[in-house]
């Protein structure tokens, strides 16, 4: 609770090693291992995709970094600290289906939620926060819909709202769970531009992604995950047919050409 009480905004010490450092991480879901002995490092300033088949533990990996899931073994350091302490520098975009879109809130209401962390307890969002939220909405091309009820948005627009909320958080690390799921091509292009902008500003972005074809186009780093971490590194080095086969089994042969 303490870090929320004193909403500090100082950036994490720059250049002090990797953004995320995971060693020997094992996470269980019930009695089933979801992540088995994962060693993983994410350097600062990369735009990284996490790919792997269904049930590979991609969402669990993000939730573990956020400290929402307790590992049974291993350690995680985010900006050199335990996850719970590092949350103030992390923005999270959950899967779009995780919330009730009939909730009585406007687009602006939802984006303003990204400012709550900076406000701390009791204080209400002020003009400055409103400005920052509108700015974030502008970045995803949604300002004109700021006062629309969220239930009236299309899937792509809902996803843009979620990304705008993350932008409004002014974070150093962005964790996004399938932000391109079900969105139209225009939105996908718009969002990838936003992500590139974040990378250019020195932020680290990790995206759970399901479309293997676009990995080399959109991302510079990639992690191949299937319960174990099969490989990670620059796309050019590890996004190979061999590693993909190890991740997906033989089904990944479409890419070997």
């Amino acid at each position: 609770m303490a870090p929320f009480l004193f909403a500090r905004r100082e950036p994490p010490a720059p250049g002090a090693g990797p953004v995320i450092e995971v060693t020997d991480l094992t996470v269980m879901y019930g009695d089933r291992p979801v992540l088995w002995d994962v060693d993983w490092e994410v350097p600062a300033g990369v735009l990284m995709a996490v790919v792997g088949p269904n049930g590979a533990g991609k969402t669990t990996l993000l939730r573990t970094i956020l400290g929402l899931v307790r590992p049974v073994a291993g350690s995680i350091a985010v900006f050199g600290r335990p996850p719970a302490e590092a949350r103030r520098w992390i923005a999270y975009v959950p899967q779009r289906t995780a919330v009730d879109w009939d909730f009585p809130a406007t687009v602006l209401d939802v984006v303003l939620m990204g400012r709550y962390r900076h406000l701390g307890w009791v204080r209400r969002p002020g003009a400055q926060d409103r400005e920052r939220a509108l700015e974030a909405l502008a970045q995803v091309g949604m300002v004109h819909l700021a006062h629309r009820q969220i239930g009236q948005l299309s899937v792509g627009q809902q996803q843009r709202v979620f990304v705008a909320r993350a932008l409004a958080q002014d974070a150093w690390l962005y964790l996004m769970d399938e932000p391109f799921a079900g969105v139209d091509a225009t939105t996908e292009q718009a969002l990838i531009e936003v992500l590139r902008g974040l990378k250019a500003a020195g932020r680290t972005v990790i995206v759970v992604h399901h479309d293997l074809q676009t990995v080399p186009l959109y991302f510079d780093w990639v992690t191949l995950l299937n319960v174990r971490c099969v490989a990670w590194g620059p796309v050019t080095a590890v996004f190979t047919a061999d590693y993909l086969r190890q991740t997906y089994g033989e089904r990944a042969s479409i890419l070997s050409g």
Binding site: F4, L68, R87, I90, P94, A98, D100, A105
Partner: peptide, 10 residues
């Protein structure tokens, strides 16, 4: 609205 986000926010 979004308990997962609330938790992620700390």
């Amino acid at each position: 609205f979004d308990p997962a986000f609330a938790a992620a926010m700390g």
